[in-house]
Design a protein around this nucleic acid. Structure first.
Length: 266
DNA sequence: AAATCATGCAACCGCCTACAA
DNA sequence: GTTGTAGGCGGTTGCATGATT
């Protein structure tokens, strides 16, 4: 492992890597990630390959903004299951756990912040996160969801095989750009007024309890890009609808390791 | 027009679980 | 029953980009 670890690539994936990964997943299925990482010649870990596939390259991915229906579903399922993102994602075909997690974090935090402002417009109070937590916990004020962000990135208008062709033409995907900007993350947290995720969740929970209209007032959303159709099997386990989980199983290409091994890849 | 701030999201990290040896 | 390994998951970080000053 040691020497291999040093050789491992990290960071944004290149177009070439994507193409390579897709073709190898096409050949061997989306199960044996370590194996795929090795035979593909990608200097990536199996984990990294899996993540890239699941969150970005998977043909079943739905691009575009969450629909109001999806938002409602997320809220509903989160209230039921908490931060079980992958579980929630399974109920939202085409959405990844990462996407839902990011969505929840950004949109719900935004909502919490707006509520916070509504409750305590005074800057001095607003900058005090602990004070905020105690305040919100005692204020059942109902706000509508401030989800009016309708801007879209061209990146999300592509996907699947369609994306693979776009890849070669150039695109706006920041993942392929060289890192040059200054990191602002630290300042973000200060502005949030939250010291930890716990605080955020606490507030979000309160918001959910307070706000029954959470999913119905999401503002207007632009159209959702249809799921891309790739030229190979989509019969896989990632985007199953309710009740399918028990029916469909295994790899979409080689249900077991034996098949791959038969081809001399073990 | 340039600088700074704010936001969205891709990708990494570390832990946990399942399973094979 | 134990151990090692791979895959899966949730939390977090860091970068690119849009918005604002």
């Amino acid at each position: 492992m040691g020497q291999e670890d040093e050789m491992m690539r990290k960071g944004p994936w290149t177009e070439q890597e994507d193409v390579q990964l897709v073709s190898f997943v096409n050949m061997f299925g989306d199960r044996r990630w370590d194996f795929i990482a090795k035979v593909s010649g990608l200097k990536r870990s199996g984990k990294s390959c899996r993540l890239r596939w699941v969150n970005y390259l998977h043909p079943g991915l739905k691009r575009g903004k969450m629909t109001p229906q999806e938002e409602r579903r997320i809220v509903e399922l989160h209230s039921k299951w908490g931060n079980r993102w992958s579980r929630i994602a399974r109920k939202l075909p085409g959405r990844t756990d990462n996407e839902i997690k990011n969505y929840w974090r950004t949109h719900m935090r935004k909502k919490a912040q707006e509520k916070k402002r509504a409750i305590s417009p005074s800057p001095s109070t607003a900058s005090n996160s602990s004070a905020y937590s105690s305040i919100t916990s005692t204020n059942p004020i109902v706000n509508s969801m401030p989800m009016t962000d309708t801007k879209e990135r061209s990146f999300y208008d592509t996907g699947g095989l369609e994306m693979m062709t776009m890849i070669t033409k150039g695109r706006s995907n920041k993942s392929y750009k060289t890192a040059t900007s200054v990191n602002n993350s630290s300042t973000r947290e200060e502005h949030d007024g939250y010291d930890s995720m716990d605080e955020i969740w606490k507030d979000i929970d309160l918001l959910e309890l307070d706000d029954g209209s959470i999913g119905g007032v999401c503002g207007t959303y632009s159209e959702m890009a249809p799921s891309p159709i790739w030229d190979y099997s989509l019969n896989n386990t990632l985007w199953m609808i309710d009740g399918q989980e028990e029916i469909i199983g295994g790899s979409m290409f080689f249900p077991d390791r034996q098949q791959a091994s038969n081809l001399g890849y073990n």
